[in-house]
């Protein structure tokens, strides 16, 4: 039983990075597909399309930060259970926000191609989703402080 909890602990430790990377990859692919399409139909502004499409890459960075905060010198059963809960849930939050961010970015790129003046405003939904990722990060860090060493 103890070994199983320790395994879960390791699972939870790496989950924010793995799930965050999936979210970032998926989100960037969605945004990047829209950016490539938009470049076919535009004579300029390529940089901002590509720049916007890379916005979901932050999720994997947050995942790395959470992993380092959760890491302990030795894995114990008590710490492992906590790491599993915090790591997995934070990881899923990062993955989901990354994917959804990619979707709204694709829409933003598509819409701002037709109406360039709305480019900034169209990024607002993606920024709100970024805020949710930051919530997941910050509160994972807060809870990580109460895990026994």
């Amino acid at each position: 039983m103890n070994e199983f909890v320790l395994a879960l602990g390791w699972f939870g430790l790496y989950a924010p990075v793995a799930l965050g990377a999936i979210g970032s990859a998926w989100g960037c692919a969605l945004g990047g597909s829209a950016a490539i399409g938009a470049m076919l139909d535009s004579d300029g502004g390529y940089g901002r399309f590509i720049g916007a499409s890379l916005m979901p890459s932050s999720q994997v960075i947050y995942g790395i930060v959470i992993m380092f905060t959760l890491q302990r010198e030795t894995m114990s059963a008590e710490a492992g259970a906590a790491m599993f809960g915090i790591g997995v849930l934070a990881g899923f939050a990062l993955m989901y926000t990354g994917i959804r961010q990619g979707e709204v970015l694709a829409s933003a790129i598509h819409a701002s191609k037709a109406k360039p003046e709305i480019f900034g405003v169209s990024l607002a939904p993606a920024a709100v989703l970024e805020g949710f990722s930051v919530f997941a990060l910050v509160f994972a860090l807060v809870l990580a402080g109460s895990i026994p060493t």
């Binding site: 692919a29 969605l30 597909s33 829209a34 950016a35 490539i36 399409g37 938009a38 076919l40 139909d41 694709a106 790129i109 598509h110 191609k113 037709a114 109406k115």
Partner: peptide, 17 residues
């Protein structure tokens, strides 16, 4: 390229009517 990404690229490459 999967269908989802292909359609995003295709739709984004079409100008606003």
């Amino acid at each position: 390229m999967s269908d989802k990404f292909r359609y995003i690229t295709l739709i984004s490459s079409l100008p606003y009517l």
